[in-house]
């Protein structure tokens, strides 16, 4: 910031209580990181429940995992990784002032996120057909274990909460897309793209852990 000597240039995105754009940008980023910390602990409660029940009933988790389709889980992992990549590309495009590429990359990201949700939808409905409902509505009798319902409660809670986050991400990303089409973001100001990107990567990281914990343990 030492080289920003223009005193009176006051860009329109700069709020009055910040000294300069750099302070505003790094504050927004730190705020987002702290929020991501809270997200980790919110998911963490469910991860803790998973670990505790797994320590109690290791055999249940191996048996019940057979009902989950590894291939579709892997496809979804690839889809989310791809969307993470395109978000990172969108930020890079913003930094290089390639306004059109911001929109293109965001568009691909939204499309991939939708693919993820569609696959999730088919996975859920397939289980509902078998009678694998969450909680006390669980009627499936293919697993010889009295606590099979607990495994699927955890499955629905964790992937469900993750799905909610993906959906919120789609919403945020659509808003970014709309604003980037208006040309609001450039190399001087791309804070919303950056911090939404951070959020999206965290959603990706959580799935990176959910995938082996549910799909790869049978």
């Amino acid at each position: 910031m030492a080289n920003k000597t223009s005193t009176h240039a006051h860009p329109k995105h700069l709020y009055h209580h910040f000294i300069d754009s750099e302070q505003q940008f790094s504050a927004a980023k730190m705020g987002m990181w702290i929020f991501l910390g809270t997200e980790i602990l919110m998911f963490g409660g469910l991860f803790a429940a998973y670990i505790i029940y797994r320590a109690w009933y290791p055999e249940l988790f191996t048996m019940a995992s057979h009902e989950l389709n590894t291939i579709w889980g892997a496809v979804n992992t690839v889809v989310l990784i791809g969307s993470s990549l395109t978000v990172a590309m969108a930020i890079k495009s913003a930094q290089l002032n390639q306004k059109r590429n911001i929109a293109i990359n965001l568009g691909i990201t939204i499309a991939l996120a939708c693919v993820f949700m569609v696959i999730k939808y088919f996975e859920y409905t397939h289980k509902f057909h078998l009678g694998i409902y969450p909680g006390e509505f669980y009627t499936f009798d293919g697993i010889e274990h009295p606590k099979a319902n607990i495994f699927f409660s955890l499955y629905y809670l964790m992937t469900g909460l993750h799905g909610i986050h993906v959906t919120i991400g789609i919403g945020l990303m659509s808003w970014l897309l709309w604003r980037s089409l208006k040309g609001d973001y450039d190399s001087e100001y791309y804070t919303p793209v950056e911090i939404t990107g951070l959020y999206w990567h965290l959603v990706d990281i959580i799935w990176i852990f959910l995938f082996p914990l549910f799909y790869l343990i049978d």
Binding site: E136, I150, S153
Partner: peptide
Amino acid sequence: LGIGIFDPALGGD
């Protein structure tokens, strides 16, 4: 939904 993580009647703790 009666997810049963905490409810002993459904196998929870």
